[in-house]
Design a protein around this nucleic acid. Structure first.
Lengths: 221, 221
DNA sequence: AACATAAGAATCGTTGAACGATTCGACAAG
DNA sequence: CTTGTCGAATCGTTCAACGATTCTTATGTT
Protein backbone atom coordinates (compact mmCIF):
# COMPACT_ATOMS: atom_id res chain seq x y z
CA UNK A 1 0.00 0.00 0.00
CA UNK A 2 1.67 3.14 -1.20
CA UNK A 3 0.51 5.91 1.07
CA UNK A 4 3.65 7.90 0.58
CA UNK A 5 2.25 9.56 -2.50
CA UNK A 6 -0.88 10.75 -0.75
CA UNK A 7 1.20 12.29 1.97
CA UNK A 8 2.06 15.26 -0.18
CA UNK A 9 -1.60 16.23 -0.16
CA UNK A 10 -1.75 16.36 3.60
CA UNK A 11 0.28 19.42 4.37
CA UNK A 12 -0.79 21.10 1.20
CA UNK A 13 -3.84 23.12 2.01
CA UNK A 14 -3.51 26.57 3.36
CA UNK A 15 -6.17 28.99 2.28
CA UNK A 16 -3.67 31.03 0.31
CA UNK A 17 -2.67 28.02 -1.75
CA UNK A 18 -6.23 27.04 -2.44
CA UNK A 19 -6.98 30.59 -3.53
CA UNK A 20 -3.95 30.45 -5.79
CA UNK A 21 -5.24 27.20 -7.29
CA UNK A 22 -8.59 28.77 -8.03
CA UNK A 23 -7.11 31.87 -9.61
CA UNK A 24 -4.67 29.80 -11.64
CA UNK A 25 -7.53 27.79 -13.07
CA UNK A 26 -9.48 30.91 -13.93
CA UNK A 27 -6.50 32.45 -15.64
CA UNK A 28 -5.70 29.31 -17.59
CA UNK A 29 -9.28 28.83 -18.69
CA UNK A 30 -9.38 32.42 -19.89
CA UNK A 31 -11.82 34.01 -17.49
CA UNK A 32 -9.12 36.48 -16.56
CA UNK A 33 -7.40 37.61 -19.73
CA UNK A 34 -3.85 38.90 -20.17
CA UNK A 35 -3.69 42.52 -19.12
CA UNK A 36 -6.68 42.31 -16.79
CA UNK A 37 -6.19 43.86 -13.41
CA UNK A 38 -7.12 41.71 -10.43
CA UNK A 39 -8.55 44.03 -7.84
CA UNK A 40 -7.68 43.00 -4.32
CA UNK A 41 -10.91 44.37 -2.95
CA UNK A 42 -13.21 42.78 -5.50
CA UNK A 43 -11.65 39.34 -5.41
CA UNK A 44 -11.18 38.99 -1.69
CA UNK A 45 -14.81 39.95 -1.32
CA UNK A 46 -16.07 37.36 -3.84
CA UNK A 47 -13.86 34.59 -2.48
CA UNK A 48 -14.58 35.58 1.10
CA UNK A 49 -11.00 35.65 2.19
CA UNK A 50 -9.09 38.50 3.73
CA UNK A 51 -6.90 40.79 1.71
CA UNK A 52 -3.79 39.47 3.42
CA UNK A 53 -4.55 35.92 2.43
CA UNK A 54 -5.31 36.99 -1.11
CA UNK A 55 -2.04 38.83 -1.33
CA UNK A 56 -0.17 35.68 -0.33
CA UNK A 57 -1.89 33.92 -3.20
CA UNK A 58 -0.90 36.74 -5.54
CA UNK A 59 2.74 36.31 -4.58
CA UNK A 60 2.54 32.64 -5.40
CA UNK A 61 1.12 33.25 -8.86
CA UNK A 62 3.47 36.12 -9.47
CA UNK A 63 6.34 33.73 -8.93
CA UNK A 64 4.83 31.42 -11.52
CA UNK A 65 4.83 34.32 -13.92
CA UNK A 66 1.09 34.18 -14.41
CA UNK A 67 0.58 37.48 -12.65
CA UNK A 68 2.62 40.63 -12.83
CA UNK A 69 3.04 42.70 -9.70
CA UNK A 70 3.40 46.40 -10.30
CA UNK A 71 4.21 48.34 -7.18
CA UNK A 72 1.32 50.40 -5.90
CA UNK A 73 -0.70 49.56 -8.96
CA UNK A 74 -1.82 46.03 -8.21
CA UNK A 75 -1.50 42.72 -9.96
CA UNK A 76 -2.28 42.09 -13.62
CA UNK A 77 -2.59 38.94 -15.65
CA UNK A 78 0.71 38.66 -17.44
CA UNK A 79 0.90 39.85 -21.02
CA UNK A 80 3.52 37.88 -22.88
CA UNK A 81 5.63 39.61 -25.48
CA UNK A 82 6.85 37.96 -28.66
CA UNK A 83 10.22 37.71 -26.90
CA UNK A 84 8.58 35.77 -24.12
CA UNK A 85 7.10 33.31 -26.58
CA UNK A 86 10.48 32.85 -28.20
CA UNK A 87 12.03 32.23 -24.81
CA UNK A 88 9.37 29.70 -23.85
CA UNK A 89 10.13 27.71 -26.98
CA UNK A 90 13.83 27.96 -26.31
CA UNK A 91 13.23 26.36 -22.94
CA UNK A 92 11.00 23.72 -24.47
CA UNK A 93 13.73 22.75 -26.92
CA UNK A 94 16.12 22.24 -24.03
CA UNK A 95 13.74 20.34 -21.73
CA UNK A 96 11.98 18.24 -24.34
CA UNK A 97 15.09 17.78 -26.42
CA UNK A 98 16.95 16.29 -23.48
CA UNK A 99 13.93 14.13 -22.74
CA UNK A 100 13.61 12.40 -26.11
CA UNK A 101 17.30 11.54 -26.10
CA UNK A 102 16.92 9.42 -23.00
CA UNK A 103 16.18 5.77 -22.68
CA UNK A 104 12.42 5.76 -22.15
CA UNK A 105 10.99 4.06 -19.09
CA UNK A 106 7.93 1.89 -19.43
CA UNK A 107 6.01 4.00 -16.98
CA UNK A 108 6.60 7.29 -18.78
CA UNK A 109 5.97 5.69 -22.13
CA UNK A 110 2.54 4.52 -21.04
CA UNK A 111 1.49 8.05 -20.14
CA UNK A 112 2.78 9.38 -23.45
CA UNK A 113 0.90 6.74 -25.41
CA UNK A 114 -2.28 7.58 -23.60
CA UNK A 115 -1.93 11.28 -24.34
CA UNK A 116 -1.37 10.56 -28.03
CA UNK A 117 -4.43 8.34 -28.14
CA UNK A 118 -6.53 10.92 -26.33
CA UNK A 119 -5.55 13.58 -28.82
CA UNK A 120 -6.48 11.32 -31.71
CA UNK A 121 -9.83 10.48 -30.19
CA UNK A 122 -10.61 14.14 -29.51
CA UNK A 123 -9.55 15.10 -33.04
CA UNK A 124 -11.81 12.45 -34.53
CA UNK A 125 -14.65 13.86 -32.45
CA UNK A 126 -13.85 17.39 -33.56
CA UNK A 127 -13.29 18.59 -30.00
CA UNK A 128 -10.35 20.91 -30.58
CA UNK A 129 -10.21 22.18 -27.07
CA UNK A 130 -9.76 18.62 -25.85
CA UNK A 131 -7.10 18.13 -28.51
CA UNK A 132 -5.21 21.08 -27.08
CA UNK A 133 -5.47 19.66 -23.59
CA UNK A 134 -4.24 16.23 -24.68
CA UNK A 135 -1.44 17.89 -26.57
CA UNK A 136 -0.27 19.64 -23.47
CA UNK A 137 -0.42 16.37 -21.56
CA UNK A 138 1.68 14.80 -24.29
CA UNK A 139 4.47 17.32 -23.94
CA UNK A 140 4.30 17.26 -20.18
CA UNK A 141 4.66 13.49 -20.36
CA UNK A 142 7.62 13.81 -22.70
CA UNK A 143 9.49 15.78 -20.09
CA UNK A 144 8.92 13.08 -17.48
CA UNK A 145 11.39 11.00 -19.49
CA UNK A 146 14.06 13.12 -17.84
CA UNK A 147 12.99 11.57 -14.57
CA UNK A 148 13.43 14.82 -12.70
CA UNK A 149 10.75 16.29 -10.45
CA UNK A 150 12.22 19.74 -10.82
CA UNK A 151 12.12 19.62 -14.59
CA UNK A 152 8.54 18.33 -14.43
CA UNK A 153 7.60 21.28 -12.29
CA UNK A 154 9.39 23.71 -14.58
CA UNK A 155 7.49 22.27 -17.55
CA UNK A 156 4.21 22.55 -15.69
CA UNK A 157 4.78 26.23 -15.13
CA UNK A 158 5.99 26.77 -18.65
CA UNK A 159 2.87 25.22 -20.13
CA UNK A 160 0.64 27.29 -17.85
CA UNK A 161 2.40 30.38 -19.13
CA UNK A 162 2.02 29.21 -22.68
CA UNK A 163 -1.70 28.86 -22.25
CA UNK A 164 -1.85 32.59 -21.69
CA UNK A 165 -0.85 32.85 -25.33
CA UNK A 166 -3.02 30.05 -26.67
CA UNK A 167 -6.08 32.14 -25.88
CA UNK A 168 -5.23 34.53 -28.69
CA UNK A 169 -5.72 31.71 -31.19
CA UNK A 170 -9.15 32.28 -32.58
CA UNK A 171 -8.90 29.13 -34.68
CA UNK A 172 -7.94 26.26 -32.37
CA UNK A 173 -8.40 23.65 -35.08
CA UNK A 174 -5.78 25.15 -37.36
CA UNK A 175 -3.38 25.31 -34.44
CA UNK A 176 -3.89 21.88 -32.94
CA UNK A 177 -4.91 19.57 -35.79
CA UNK A 178 -1.57 19.36 -37.61
CA UNK A 179 0.18 18.16 -34.50
CA UNK A 180 -1.95 15.15 -33.73
CA UNK A 181 -0.26 13.05 -36.39
CA UNK A 182 3.15 14.40 -35.41
CA UNK A 183 2.64 13.33 -31.82
CA UNK A 184 2.16 9.80 -33.13
CA UNK A 185 5.23 10.09 -35.33
CA UNK A 186 7.40 11.32 -32.50
CA UNK A 187 6.15 8.57 -30.21
CA UNK A 188 7.05 6.03 -32.89
CA UNK A 189 10.62 7.28 -33.12
CA UNK A 190 11.01 7.14 -29.37
CA UNK A 191 9.65 3.61 -29.20
CA UNK A 192 11.93 2.58 -32.05
CA UNK A 193 14.94 3.73 -30.05
CA UNK A 194 16.00 6.42 -32.49
CA UNK A 195 16.87 9.33 -30.24
CA UNK A 196 18.58 11.44 -32.90
CA UNK A 197 15.70 11.22 -35.35
CA UNK A 198 13.26 11.82 -32.50
CA UNK A 199 15.18 14.94 -31.52
CA UNK A 200 15.16 16.18 -35.11
CA UNK A 201 11.45 15.51 -35.36
CA UNK A 202 10.85 17.38 -32.15
CA UNK A 203 12.89 20.39 -33.28
CA UNK A 204 10.89 20.66 -36.48
CA UNK A 205 7.72 20.25 -34.43
CA UNK A 206 8.62 23.08 -32.10
CA UNK A 207 9.79 25.33 -34.91
CA UNK A 208 6.45 24.98 -36.66
CA UNK A 209 4.43 25.46 -33.50
CA UNK A 210 6.38 28.57 -32.63
CA UNK A 211 5.93 30.01 -36.09
CA UNK A 212 2.19 29.43 -36.02
CA UNK A 213 1.94 31.03 -32.64
CA UNK A 214 4.08 34.07 -33.34
CA UNK A 215 2.27 34.82 -36.58
CA UNK A 216 -1.09 34.69 -34.87
CA UNK A 217 0.26 36.67 -31.97
CA UNK A 218 2.41 39.50 -33.25
CA UNK A 219 -0.28 41.36 -35.24
CA UNK A 220 -2.64 41.42 -32.28
CA UNK A 221 -0.42 43.66 -30.18
CA UNK B 1 18.82 56.68 -25.16
CA UNK B 2 17.72 53.36 -23.80
CA UNK B 3 15.69 54.01 -20.68
CA UNK B 4 13.67 50.87 -21.15
CA UNK B 5 16.30 48.87 -19.36
CA UNK B 6 16.24 51.06 -16.27
CA UNK B 7 12.51 50.73 -16.04
CA UNK B 8 12.76 47.33 -14.44
CA UNK B 9 14.44 48.92 -11.44
CA UNK B 10 11.53 51.22 -10.78
CA UNK B 11 8.80 48.94 -9.60
CA UNK B 12 11.11 46.50 -7.91
CA UNK B 13 11.19 47.10 -4.21
CA UNK B 14 8.34 46.17 -1.96
CA UNK B 15 9.22 45.48 1.64
CA UNK B 16 8.34 41.83 1.28
CA UNK B 17 10.81 41.39 -1.55
CA UNK B 18 13.55 43.16 0.32
CA UNK B 19 12.90 40.97 3.34
CA UNK B 20 13.08 37.94 1.07
CA UNK B 21 16.42 39.19 -0.29
CA UNK B 22 17.81 39.54 3.22
CA UNK B 23 16.65 36.11 4.32
CA UNK B 24 17.94 34.52 1.12
CA UNK B 25 21.37 35.98 1.76
CA UNK B 26 21.38 34.76 5.34
CA UNK B 27 20.37 31.27 4.28
CA UNK B 28 22.94 31.09 1.51
CA UNK B 29 25.72 32.37 3.73
CA UNK B 30 24.83 29.75 6.30
CA UNK B 31 23.55 31.85 9.19
CA UNK B 32 20.33 29.88 8.99
CA UNK B 33 21.15 26.22 8.56
CA UNK B 34 19.08 23.49 6.92
CA UNK B 35 16.44 22.31 9.35
CA UNK B 36 16.36 25.56 11.33
CA UNK B 37 12.95 26.89 12.08
CA UNK B 38 12.34 30.52 11.20
CA UNK B 39 10.00 31.86 13.85
CA UNK B 40 7.59 34.44 12.52
CA UNK B 41 7.53 36.28 15.77
CA UNK B 42 11.27 36.44 16.30
CA UNK B 43 12.16 37.51 12.79
CA UNK B 44 9.45 40.08 12.23
CA UNK B 45 10.49 41.63 15.50
CA UNK B 46 14.18 41.82 14.59
CA UNK B 47 13.51 43.09 11.08
CA UNK B 48 10.81 45.42 12.30
CA UNK B 49 8.24 44.36 9.76
CA UNK B 50 4.77 43.03 10.37
CA UNK B 51 3.96 39.36 10.41
CA UNK B 52 1.93 39.69 7.24
CA UNK B 53 4.80 41.20 5.30
CA UNK B 54 7.15 38.56 6.61
CA UNK B 55 4.77 35.84 5.56
CA UNK B 56 4.71 37.21 2.03
CA UNK B 57 8.49 36.97 2.01
CA UNK B 58 8.27 33.39 3.30
CA UNK B 59 6.00 32.47 0.39
CA UNK B 60 8.54 33.86 -2.02
CA UNK B 61 11.38 31.83 -0.60
CA UNK B 62 9.20 28.77 -0.27
CA UNK B 63 8.62 28.94 -3.98
CA UNK B 64 12.36 29.05 -4.52
CA UNK B 65 12.61 25.89 -2.46
CA UNK B 66 14.90 27.48 0.09
CA UNK B 67 12.24 27.30 2.76
CA UNK B 68 9.79 24.55 3.51
CA UNK B 69 6.34 25.47 4.69
CA UNK B 70 4.74 22.97 7.04
CA UNK B 71 1.15 23.73 7.84
CA UNK B 72 0.65 25.00 11.36
CA UNK B 73 4.26 24.34 12.18
CA UNK B 74 6.02 27.22 10.51
CA UNK B 75 8.76 27.54 7.95
CA UNK B 76 12.05 25.68 8.03
CA UNK B 77 15.22 26.03 6.05
CA UNK B 78 15.00 23.28 3.50
CA UNK B 79 16.86 20.04 4.20
CA UNK B 80 17.89 18.43 0.96
CA UNK B 81 17.82 14.68 0.70
CA UNK B 82 20.30 12.66 -1.34
CA UNK B 83 17.50 12.34 -3.91
CA UNK B 84 17.29 16.10 -4.11
CA UNK B 85 21.00 16.36 -4.78
CA UNK B 86 20.71 13.76 -7.51
CA UNK B 87 17.84 15.68 -9.05
CA UNK B 88 19.73 18.95 -8.94
CA UNK B 89 22.57 17.37 -10.87
CA UNK B 90 20.14 15.86 -13.34
CA UNK B 91 18.83 19.36 -14.03
CA UNK B 92 22.35 20.72 -14.31
CA UNK B 93 23.22 18.11 -16.92
CA UNK B 94 20.24 19.22 -18.97
CA UNK B 95 20.73 22.97 -18.63
CA UNK B 96 24.50 23.07 -18.87
CA UNK B 97 24.66 20.28 -21.42
CA UNK B 98 22.40 22.18 -23.77
CA UNK B 99 24.46 25.30 -23.15
CA UNK B 100 27.86 23.96 -24.13
CA UNK B 101 26.47 22.54 -27.36
CA UNK B 102 25.53 25.98 -28.59
CA UNK B 103 27.49 28.40 -30.66
CA UNK B 104 28.98 30.65 -27.98
CA UNK B 105 28.35 34.38 -28.18
CA UNK B 106 31.23 36.76 -27.54
CA UNK B 107 29.39 38.40 -24.69
CA UNK B 108 28.71 35.19 -22.80
CA UNK B 109 32.20 33.93 -23.46
CA UNK B 110 33.71 37.01 -21.89
CA UNK B 111 31.83 36.41 -18.64
CA UNK B 112 32.87 32.77 -18.61
CA UNK B 113 36.51 33.65 -19.15
CA UNK B 114 36.40 36.09 -16.30
CA UNK B 115 34.90 33.54 -13.93
CA UNK B 116 37.61 31.04 -14.84
CA UNK B 117 40.31 33.62 -14.26
CA UNK B 118 38.78 34.65 -10.94
CA UNK B 119 38.73 31.06 -9.76
CA UNK B 120 42.38 30.63 -10.70
CA UNK B 121 43.38 33.82 -8.92
CA UNK B 122 41.48 32.84 -5.79
CA UNK B 123 42.97 29.35 -5.84
CA UNK B 124 46.46 30.78 -6.13
CA UNK B 125 45.71 32.96 -3.12
CA UNK B 126 44.34 29.99 -1.21
CA UNK B 127 40.93 31.63 -0.73
CA UNK B 128 38.73 28.57 -1.17
CA UNK B 129 35.55 30.34 -0.37
CA UNK B 130 36.22 32.74 -3.21
CA UNK B 131 37.02 29.79 -5.44
CA UNK B 132 33.60 28.36 -4.70
CA UNK B 133 31.94 31.66 -5.52
CA UNK B 134 33.81 31.99 -8.81
CA UNK B 135 32.94 28.40 -9.62
CA UNK B 136 29.28 29.14 -9.22
CA UNK B 137 29.64 32.20 -11.41
CA UNK B 138 31.31 30.00 -14.00
CA UNK B 139 28.42 27.58 -14.21
CA UNK B 140 25.86 30.36 -14.12
CA UNK B 141 27.68 31.95 -17.03
CA UNK B 142 27.72 28.65 -18.91
CA UNK B 143 23.95 28.56 -18.85
CA UNK B 144 23.73 32.04 -20.33
CA UNK B 145 24.97 30.44 -23.55
CA UNK B 146 21.41 29.20 -23.95
CA UNK B 147 20.41 32.84 -24.29
CA UNK B 148 17.23 32.29 -22.30
CA UNK B 149 16.23 34.48 -19.36
CA UNK B 150 14.03 31.73 -17.97
CA UNK B 151 16.83 29.18 -17.99
CA UNK B 152 19.12 31.74 -16.37
CA UNK B 153 16.60 32.23 -13.62
CA UNK B 154 16.13 28.50 -13.17
CA UNK B 155 19.89 28.08 -12.85
CA UNK B 156 20.06 30.91 -10.33
CA UNK B 157 17.55 29.15 -8.12
CA UNK B 158 19.18 25.80 -8.60
CA UNK B 159 22.55 27.11 -7.47
CA UNK B 160 21.00 28.78 -4.44
CA UNK B 161 19.49 25.44 -3.52
CA UNK B 162 22.78 23.71 -4.06
CA UNK B 163 24.51 26.08 -1.69
CA UNK B 164 22.33 24.65 1.05
CA UNK B 165 24.30 21.47 0.54
CA UNK B 166 27.72 23.01 0.10
CA UNK B 167 27.70 24.03 3.74
CA UNK B 168 28.08 20.42 4.81
CA UNK B 169 31.50 20.35 3.16
CA UNK B 170 33.90 20.79 6.00
CA UNK B 171 36.85 20.80 3.60
CA UNK B 172 36.18 23.40 0.91
CA UNK B 173 39.62 23.03 -0.61
CA UNK B 174 39.16 19.37 -1.43
CA UNK B 175 35.83 20.13 -2.98
CA UNK B 176 36.72 23.17 -5.06
CA UNK B 177 40.38 22.86 -5.97
CA UNK B 178 40.13 20.00 -8.47
CA UNK B 179 37.63 21.89 -10.57
CA UNK B 180 39.65 25.02 -11.20
CA UNK B 181 41.74 23.33 -13.87
CA UNK B 182 38.69 21.64 -15.33
CA UNK B 183 36.93 24.96 -15.73
CA UNK B 184 39.85 26.05 -17.88
CA UNK B 185 39.76 22.82 -19.84
CA UNK B 186 36.03 23.10 -20.51
CA UNK B 187 36.40 26.71 -21.58
CA UNK B 188 39.13 25.66 -24.00
CA UNK B 189 36.89 23.07 -25.64
CA UNK B 190 34.09 25.60 -26.03
CA UNK B 191 36.42 28.17 -27.55
CA UNK B 192 37.83 25.52 -29.88
CA UNK B 193 34.35 24.84 -31.22
CA UNK B 194 34.21 21.23 -30.04
CA UNK B 195 30.72 20.93 -28.60
CA UNK B 196 30.73 17.13 -28.35
CA UNK B 197 33.98 16.99 -26.45
CA UNK B 198 32.87 19.91 -24.30
CA UNK B 199 29.66 18.06 -23.46
CA UNK B 200 31.60 14.92 -22.58
CA UNK B 201 33.97 16.95 -20.41
CA UNK B 202 31.04 18.56 -18.67
CA UNK B 203 29.32 15.25 -18.00
CA UNK B 204 32.46 13.86 -16.38
CA UNK B 205 32.79 17.09 -14.43
CA UNK B 206 29.27 16.88 -13.07
CA UNK B 207 29.56 13.17 -12.31
CA UNK B 208 32.64 13.79 -10.19
CA UNK B 209 31.16 16.78 -8.42
CA UNK B 210 28.02 14.86 -7.60
CA UNK B 211 30.01 11.93 -6.27
CA UNK B 212 32.09 14.15 -4.02
CA UNK B 213 29.00 15.84 -2.71
CA UNK B 214 26.94 12.74 -2.11
CA UNK B 215 29.77 11.01 -0.29
CA UNK B 216 30.26 13.96 2.01
CA UNK B 217 26.54 14.31 2.45
CA UNK B 218 25.04 10.91 2.98
CA UNK B 219 26.85 9.96 6.19
CA UNK B 220 25.88 13.17 7.92
CA UNK B 221 22.18 12.36 7.86
C1' DA C 1 8.85 1.48 34.55
C1' DA C 2 6.29 2.04 30.24
C1' DC C 3 2.59 3.83 28.09
C1' DA C 4 -1.62 6.36 27.20
C1' DT C 5 -4.15 10.48 28.19
C1' DA C 6 -5.25 15.06 29.13
C1' DA C 7 -4.44 19.88 30.37
C1' DG C 8 -1.57 24.03 29.10
C1' DA C 9 1.63 26.87 26.51
C1' DA C 10 3.35 28.34 22.23
C1' DT C 11 2.75 29.31 17.58
C1' DC C 12 0.45 29.38 13.36
C1' DG C 13 -3.61 30.74 10.14
C1' DT C 14 -6.76 34.03 9.14
C1' DT C 15 -9.39 37.95 9.71
C1' DG C 16 -10.76 42.93 9.93
C1' DA C 17 -9.74 47.54 10.48
C1' DA C 18 -6.78 51.37 10.10
C1' DC C 19 -3.70 54.90 7.91
C1' DG C 20 0.03 56.70 5.17
C1' DA C 21 1.84 56.41 0.38
C1' DT C 22 1.31 56.18 -4.51
C1' DT C 23 -1.06 56.35 -8.73
C1' DC C 24 -4.43 58.01 -11.94
C1' DG C 25 -7.66 61.02 -14.02
C1' DA C 26 -9.96 65.37 -14.23
C1' DC C 27 -9.80 70.08 -14.37
C1' DA C 28 -7.86 74.64 -14.23
C1' DA C 29 -4.02 77.88 -15.34
C1' DG C 30 -0.43 79.30 -18.36
C1' DC D 1 -1.55 72.02 -26.13
C1' DT D 2 1.30 71.65 -22.12
C1' DT D 3 1.95 71.94 -17.29
C1' DG D 4 0.51 71.96 -12.49
C1' DT D 5 -2.80 70.86 -8.82
C1' DC D 6 -6.33 68.36 -6.37
C1' DG D 7 -9.14 64.45 -4.97
C1' DA D 8 -10.66 59.70 -5.36
C1' DA D 9 -9.28 55.07 -5.59
C1' DT D 10 -6.21 51.59 -4.48
C1' DC D 11 -2.13 49.68 -2.78
C1' DG D 12 1.47 48.73 1.04
C1' DT D 13 2.01 47.93 5.61
C1' DT D 14 0.97 47.56 10.28
C1' DC D 15 -1.56 46.07 14.36
C1' DA D 16 -4.59 43.52 17.35
C1' DA D 17 -7.42 39.70 17.97
C1' DC D 18 -9.11 34.82 18.14
C1' DG D 19 -9.79 30.11 16.78
C1' DA D 20 -7.08 26.08 15.35
C1' DT D 21 -3.12 23.13 15.55
C1' DT D 22 0.97 21.39 17.43
C1' DC D 23 4.27 20.57 20.99
C1' DT D 24 5.26 19.97 25.87
C1' DT D 25 4.61 18.51 30.22
C1' DA D 26 2.34 16.57 33.92
C1' DT D 27 -0.85 13.09 35.42
C1' DG D 28 -2.76 8.68 35.91
C1' DT D 29 -3.21 3.74 34.59
C1' DT D 30 -1.56 -0.99 33.75
Amino acid sequence: MDLVRDRSRLGRSSTAERVADILRDRIIEGMFKPGDRLSEETICERLEVSRNTLREAFRLLGHERLLEHRLNRGVFVRVLSADDVADLYRVRRVLEGAAVRREPTARALAVIREAVADAERAAAAGDWHAVGTANIRFHQALVTLNDSPRLDEAMRQLLAELRLVFHVMENPRAFHEPFVARNRELLGLIEAGEPDRAAACLDAYLDDAEQLLVHAYEPSR
